[in-house]
Every structure is written in structure tokens, then in C-alpha cells.
């Protein structure tokens, strides 16, 4: 097996770190910021697998990933770091629409700045062109609800919708990992996304323990689908 490129390792690591963050968000002390950080890592996966470019792009994506990972323990004003990295990424030649996904990455964990997810969602819609599938609209809708919930002071709802939207971003925008021993498994990813959507919709009424635990579990299903072994075939 050839050694996978750095960008694909970053993508796979982002998914595993998202799963770890979601678990830590649940236990020992419920912490919504960790769920937001997990959604940021999902968006890093999406950007890592879809943004073109060389070493500078990889450096910027690594910076965004590190910012997402550290965001629960970082001062809020440090959100400017991933934002600046995402803006640089968007300005790069050839990055185009996928670079906006990186902006979404920075927005996903920008707790305290609910305007940013709205900008990310608007950017996603603006960059998408005319042809659009229905499920793609769920993504910006999820970010918009997350932002609104953030403004209205419902952190659980904001984090749940942000996680579901970022998982959709990872599932629909990521192009997979052709040089890694993984492939995206559609049924498993779809099942995980469905579960995350149900959890997000139920977030206003669910108590914190089952909400966080089920969010983590549903995220695992998505990650298991995105990192399914290459050999497993849907045709079997």
C-alpha cells in the first residue's frame, strides 16, 4: 500500500478526532463547545478532500484543524486565526467553491459568533450554482438554524444542528480518500446523517445526556461510513 498523501491523512485524522471530541463532549461533563469543535473537524475533512492546491493549502488546512481542536480551550477572539486561514484559502487561485467550505469549518466552531455560520451558509448557497439537489439545501438550512439557536440562547440546539450540518458537508462535499484504504459507504453515511438530523430536530426536548450521547453515536455511524474499508463493496 502506497503511503497516503498528507492531505488524506489530515482528512482521516479529522474524522477520528471529531469522533473523539464528540465522546469527550458527552463524558465526564457535558460540554457543547466540544460538539461544536467536532463539527469544525468534520468541515476540515470536507475541505481536505475537496480543496485543490499544494503545500500552502495543506498548511492552512492544518491551521484550521488545529484551531478547531483547540477552540474549546481557546479565548473566543482567536476565531480570527481560522477565519484568516479560510480567507487566505478562499483567495487562492483554483480553490473556488470548496474554499468556502473551509470558511464553514471556521464558522462551525465559532461559538459566540453566530453571524459566521450565516455567512458560511450564504456563501455555500452563492457558490453552488443553479444545479442543486434537495439534500444539499439541508446543509445551509442546518447552519442557519444553528445560528438562530445560538442567538436565542439555546446552545444544545445550536450544537446539534451545527453537527448535523457539518456531517452533511463532510458527506456531500468530500470526494473520498482514493489513496487511503477507505471509501465512503453511502448507506452507512445516509443512516448516520438521518440519525443526526433526528437528534437535531429532537434537541429542544431531549435531556442533555441522551442528546449528547446519541449525537456522538450517530456521528460514529457517519464516520464509519466515510472511513469504510475499500474492500467492502455495496454490490455484495
Amino acid at each position: 500500500m502506497a503511503r497516503p498523501p498528507y492531505r488524506e491523512l489530515l482528512a482521516a485524522a479529522s474524522l477520528l478526532l471529531a469522533a473523539a471530541l464528540a465522546t469527550y463532549a458527552y463524558y465526564p461533563i457535558p460540554d457543547w463547545r466540544l460538539l461544536l469543535a467536532a463539527s469544525g473537524m468534520l468541515a476540515v475533512y470536507a475541505a481536505s478532500t475537496s480543496v485543490d492546491g499544494g503545500v500552502p493549502v495543506s498548511v492552512l488546512l492544518t491551521l484550521i484543524a488545529a484551531s478547531a481542536l483547540a477552540s474549546p480551550a481557546s479565548p473566543a477572539f482567536l476565531v480570527v486565526v481560522p477565519l484568516a486561514a479560510a480567507a487566505l484559502l478562499a483567495a487562492m487561485r483554483g480553490a473556488g467553491r470548496p474554499a468556502l467550505l473551509a470558511i464553514a469549518a471556521s464558522a462551525a466552531f465559532s461559538w459566540g459568533y453566530p453571524l459566521l455560520p450565516i455567512l458560511a451558509a450564504a456563501g455555500y448557497l452563492a457558490a453552488g450554482g443553479r444545479r442543486r439537489r434537495l439534500h444539499e439545501l439541508l446543509l445551509p438550512a442546518g447552519y442557519l438554524v444553528a445560528a438562530a439557536a445560538g442567538y436565542l440562547g439555546h446552545p444544545a440546539m445550536a450544537a446539534s444542528f451545527s453537527l448535523a450540518a457539518s456531517a452533511a458537508l463532510a458527506a456531500y462535499s468530500g470526494r473520498g480518500l482514493p489513496s487511503c484504504p477507505f471509501r465512503a459507504d453511502r448507506p452507512l453515511v445516509a443512516a448516520g446523517l438521518l440519525a443526526l438530523s433526528i437528534v437535531a430536530l429532537a434537541s429542544p426536548v431531549l435531556p442533555a445526556p441522551p442528546l449528547l450521547a446519541t449525537s456522538a453515536g450517530a456521528l460514529y455511524v457517519v464516520v464509519a461510513g466515510l472511513l469504510a474499508p475499500v474492500g467492502s463493496s455495496e454490490k455484495v
Binding site: Y26, P210, G217, A218, V221
Partner: peptide, 20 residues
């Protein structure tokens, strides 16, 4: 799997963690 997580987390955070 997700049903098990819901059932466990309603009773015990530690049990749900082991399932996860």
C-alpha cells in the same frame, strides 16, 4: 446501536460511554 445509547444514557453516563 443508537437505541442502546439512548437507553443507557438515560440511566448511566458511564454505561453509555462503554457502549460508545
Amino acid at each position: 446501536f443508537l437505541s442502546s445509547v439512548v437507553v443507557a444514557s438515560l440511566r448511566s453516563g458511564a454505561l453509555a460511554l462503554t457502549i460508545l
